[in-house]
Design a protein around this nucleic acid. Structure first.
Lengths: 237, 237
DNA sequence: TATCATTGTTTCATTATGGAACAATGATAC
DNA sequence: GTATCATTGTTCCATAATGAAACAATGATA
């Protein structure tokens, strides 16, 4: 059987530089991360790729995200550069590319050290239709607290992304990007609790959020449950 | 007259990647930035350089800092990556290298686009003995509010570094790195006011800082002035 | 000894936060 | 219909943090 061979044109990219994206979504009271799975290996990775020689790094991050996960036009924020000389080995990548039938010169820069720029993305879980990138076997959401076996230093990158998210929580109106158009106060609170990984008081949370004047009360949400129906809110533009 | 020619060995470095450092110091009630001056041009730049192929980026930043300014072993923090495709032109660099008698292949990657990692450094102004790097004509401190003509997007990089410094002020114990061993409460307050660019109340500032329990009162400072002598403080290790 | 400039501290009002209780309400069981 | 239940929305009060003003202390000088 002749194998299909996908060839990476190394000349098109800036060598030794890569981008890795941590895509956060929120669903079922859990903070999740979208991860592609390496073909035929028990190995997952952050969606990553290279920067074209005449491409803005921000654009590169968007392109990579779309190629690997199908997610387009989303909130992206650079958060850290991972640049230890020994942070990635060519061996893992060779294993991965072998499983993907990617033909590449064995002496290529892609097997040498990488400096990787970390971006985090915030997406509305309900609007995402993931697609499987050409190098991947699957692309799935994972609870931030139960991550699978991750390649390279991608666990560390994910951790740093989470810490940055926490640090920026008050500053960046993160709910706007992680929640659907309308949501209940409880959903917003659980999102904050999940990111901060600590419980918050219902009354104080509501008071504080409402005092910020960024929410608009829309209507009530009748779920059929035997209790008072909560209001729905949306962010004011 | 035969010119001395310094040759950059492009092969040693990761191409298209650079590091730029914003070095903050505090003196005479002003926040200052240490800038090398390009030889024979009315042009200043941030101390910057390239990353060796097997070098940690953090190490590279330290090395660059030492080569260009003589400053060693200081507090360094990565703050942003500048990666627009059009952020630097080869023309400016050619002008600079020409003035420095640096011989380089005209088709080298150094004249193409760069992705630059920004680091900021905090130093004790009183302990710094700057030296002039081999590519430079001078190396001087400039008030953050009166910057000279800066190359490339270095004004923007400096601005972003300042914003990051502001944002981190409560979190990072910045005074520890910018002030000498001992200092008065007023000096610390002026440092904060200078970074935040807004006045603070004397009484409230003192109360807040002291309540953090990070300062130790050492002795009094007699200046010979006709008023009460202020205490000196130092940071508790 | 009085004066002056500045530093250190206290006091009081205002605002934010922590903690508890109470009121409202939409379904269900009887 | 009425009582019950779970959850949501709100109020109340004590405590902590912050803003603003006044007062007390002190080291030199006149």
């Amino acid at each position: 059987m002749e194998s299909e061979q996908i060839i990476i044109d190394e000349e098109k990219f800036i060598p030794h530089l890569s981008i890795d994206c941590v895509i956060f979504g929120f669903h079922g009271e859990q903070l999740k991360v979208l991860l592609p799975k390496v073909k035929n290996l028990d190995l997952w990775s952050l969606p990553g790729g290279y920067v074209l020689k005449d491409e803005d790094i921000e654009k590169a991050a968007q392109r990579i995200l779309e190629e690997r996960t199908g997610v387009t036009d989303i909130y992206l924020e650079q958060f850290y550069v991972f640049g230890k000389a020994n942070r990635s080995t060519g061996e893992t990548l060779k294993k991965i590319l072998l499983k993907n039938n990617v033909k590449i010169n064995n002496t290529s820069w892609v097997f040498e050290r990488f400096v990787s720029i970390g971006y985090y993305a915030l997406v509305d879980f309900s609007k995402v239709n993931t697609k499987i990138g050409i190098y991947d076997e699957a692309c799935e959401w994972h609870d931030i607290h139960q991550l699978p076996n991750l390649a390279f230093d991608h666990a560390e990158i994910t951790q740093k992304a989470l810490e940055t998210l926490r640090f920026m929580l008050d500053d960046k109106l993160i709910g706007l990007n992680l929640l659907p158009e309308t949501f209940t106060m409880k959903e917003l609170q659980i999102l904050y609790e999940t990111i901060l990984d600590k419980p918050l008081r219902r009354d104080n949370f509501q008071r504080k959020i409402l005092s910020m004047g960024i929410l608009e009360r829309v209507e009530k949400k009748f779920t059929g449950a035997a209790h008072k129906a909560p209001y729905l809110y949306k962010f004011i533009k």
